[in-house]
Design a protein around this nucleic acid. Sequence first.
DNA 1: CACTGCATGTAAGACGTTACATGATTAG
DNA 2: CTAATCATGTAACGTCTTACATGCAGTG
Lengths: 190, 190
Amino acid sequence: MNTLSYGLLSLLSHSPLSGYDLMLKIQPFWPAKHSQIYPLLSSMEKEEQVSFELVAQSDKPDKKVYTITSRGLASLREWLAEPASDPVLRDELMLKAYCVSAVDPEVARPLFRHRLEFYEAKVVRVEEKIASIRRDAGLSESESPDYRSARFGAFILLNKALMASRTNIEWCRWVLGLIPVDAVETKEER
Amino acid sequence: MNTLSYGLLSLLSHSPLSGYDLMLKIQPFWPAKHSQIYPLLSSMEKEEQVSFELVAQSDKPDKKVYTITSRGLASLREWLAEPASDPVLRDELMLKAYCVSAVDPEVARPLFRHRLEFYEAKVVRVEEKIASIRRDAGLSESESPDYRSARFGAFILLNKALMASRTNIEWCRWVLGLIPVDAVETKEER
DNA sequence: CACTGCATGTAAGACGTTACATGATTAG
DNA sequence: CTAATCATGTAACGTCTTACATGCAGTG
């Protein structure tokens, strides 16, 4: 039982899901490939943290739908009571930013522009998801789901992603403003 | 040559450093243990990306001080020109937040309070470092180092960390406000 | 006298990614 | 007709962490 396995239990605490769906759903929180998830689910099933049911599908391939067991829920509650370990961010752009003075502004600028676009697209996606949660729960713009609601977890996480993305957009714009515009070499001059 | 090795080159592009110092300095950007860094430096030295000099010390153990070679600088510039891969954040608190409704508010609250304190402490550390860069460069509160300055990279990264930490503080406080205060069980009542 | 910091290294194991493998359906 | 999506699995490889190993100097 490592962090990823608790992450899977966390997702399964809301509703039963197939290994494939779990793989897709866990991406924003704890990126993992299917090759890591399928064997883990097998071992979790052996330990009776989860159980599965084979679901035949006519148009799509058959699937295993996993459900959290009472033992799994108990493990999840124990894990939740422990303090969370410190977050780990691995971002190539931070390494590049550190030595950015080693290259010309024309090389540097696309790095931050690309990242700016990445976060702008993310804001759009996240805002849509937040709106859809509010719609489903019949909440107004200013309201939040109740703590005991099944939507609470997803809601606070989407807001975290939204706030973080907006901050990153602000940072990228600020950095781009600090990168000098070189002697402009227009096509006429060449 | 993986991402970590470019990270080491990035640090060495500013000044020569020992393996130990590299290990300490890279933590905020790309956490790695000495057991990963020492063998990497050896292989980078074989590929002539870096060179080292044995420096004897009287009070402390001797050390190997690594310097980036011209080949290393060339590799670094090539790598800088490529777009940075997407950032990866692995945060146990996000997994716990998703299923937080599974436990009582008294269990949930310390998770976010602890994280709040983590980021508050970080803001203090980062603000100090930003102030010290400004002092060293003789800059006022509103000024930033020049793009070509050796301080530019560290400066923009510290500001990123500052902005992100403040946003996380805001998020933690917002979440704590959404977690209900249970029927207060005072000592007198027991 | 124990612990922390400085300084380097290796070995074993856990974790994560890429590639191999299969196969049906649907969209462009 | 090609690519993507759904769906599961294994094998090989690369990355990262933990533990083992050494040794001196300074602090509590």
